[in-house]
Design a binder for these strands. Structure first.
Lengths: 240, 240
DNA sequence: GATTTGCAAGAGCACCGCTCTCGTTTGTTG
DNA sequence: CAACAAACGAGAGCGGTGCTCTTGCAAATC
């Protein structure tokens, strides 16, 4: 029985669910994921703690919802930054814009960043629902790379350490991932896959080190440093 | 009044302190830092929770002690790996051994790794006592780099993106750090400092991504991949 | 030997995640 | 419209947490 008119209860349920998520999200910006208290969130929305369990079966389920929201929020920010570059052939600008968007979002949402890319909650395994939103960021970067190679804007990866035999199997999963979103088939090089994963981990490693305080005694100007990192990994990828 | 013979009380205090730390450390390998329960640790050593407060003023202080122990443990492992390379002129081998030691230790001590390099506890600021142990790892890497440049084993950083003007101030703190442990003064290049920090963050970014599960869909053979990363950042540094 | 100090134990506080019960409200069905 | 079923919020309660305070005992000092 299809019914387009939501009942008052359905409507209220959606609103309250969103309210709880918003409150949890707000708490997440000032606290960490491990310290997120379901009771405190309940108080924020004016409910008793047990009532929250009508909407989320457990604290972990709430965290999962926040995880998905976080990945989607970051992914959307990066996609928007890429889309904002009107000259689609300007690979360098698209790459820089996307990378800067990652860092900006991370700095604006440190709690969410810790939830997404910090130490995972030990007993908690992220369910399948999270992997699709989680791939949005890397998808933007790969799409830019594909465009770069398709239009010939990218130098072929230059000499130094070429991928040794066996690299294909090392990064096989990544190449499969790329193949799915590269109908032109221009990006089927293990060396490129290798460098892409490295670029990816370097970017997030840099942000993690900055946010988690490991660069305190080393880097004076985080933004300038990050721009340097962007430029260097971009150069290593043959773009920029 | 100097007394060389420790009293029974002093001796017991040291032993029990060590016992508590060992129990906490044991729990840390299977759980995360956030989940570490002081009460559970107390039960493990056969005490009541309040008794532990005679030895550690708070849970945070216990975490600080574990933090220092962790940094020292990792630092010692990396130092040992470097020291085990008898041919001190074999920069490539020393670099690889040190990097592999970082990863090995991290995999063997995932709980400690999360404590050291994962998301920090929000309200908790690491005290000064931790920074000295924390620099042991990077010190080993820098020492190897210094040797490489002193003996002429390192290629000068090749062309691509040379450090733009202003890089000196961006990584000024790092260059000061290097100068302190480089009496020969061979390593006073902003470009090298820049690349060193990048290598450092890339190595730990890679390990974090592996341990925190972000490489699941991309990398099939973590060890082979990490060896590749070692080789490429080593190449970028002019060694190897 | 008397006294000061260090220590383990216990009770207790406020908080946590989570479960269960109990009225009440809402939606559906006869 | 009436009756039933489902969803809901509130509250009490369980076992757990970090931490404080008091109490009695043992060790070190005088």
């Amino acid at each position: 029985m299809e019914q387009k008119a939501k009942t008052a209860r359905q409507r209220a349920r959606e609103e309250i669910t969103e309210e709880i998520l918003a409150a949890a999200r707000a708490r997440l910006t000032s606290q960490g994921p491990g310290e997120l208290s379901l009771r405190a969130v309940a108080r924020d929305v004016g409910m008793v703690s047990s009532a929250v369990y009508r909407y989320f079966a457990s604290r972990d389920e709430l965290l999962t919802a926040l995880l998905i929201e976080g990945y989607d929020s970051l992914g959307a920010a990066v996609e928007a930054a890429d889309r904002a570059v009107t000259d689609r052939a300007d690979i360098s600008e698209r790459w820089s814009a996307a990378c800067r968007a990652i860092r900006s979002w991370s700095i604006e949402h440190p709690g969410d960043y810790a939830l997404l890319y910090g130490s995972p909650v030990p007993g908690y395994a992220a369910p399948q629902d999270t992997i699709a939103p989680a791939t949005r960021v890397i998808s933007v970067l790969i799409a830019t790379l594909i465009d770069a190679h398709r239009t010939g804007a990218a130098r072929v990866p230059s000499a130094p350490p070429a991928a040794p035999p066996g690299t294909e199997s090392t990064v096989a999963a990544a190449m499969e991932f790329v193949k799915l979103r590269d109908e032109s088939g221009t990006l089927s090089d293990a060396e490129i896959a290798m460098r892409t994963i490295m670029a990816w981990t370097t970017i997030f490693g840099t942000i993690s080190f900055e946010l988690f305080g490991h660069l305190v005694g080393s880097v004076s100007d985080y933004e300038a440093y990050f721009d340097q990192v962007i430029a260097r990994v971009g150069h290593d990828l043959g773009i920029l």
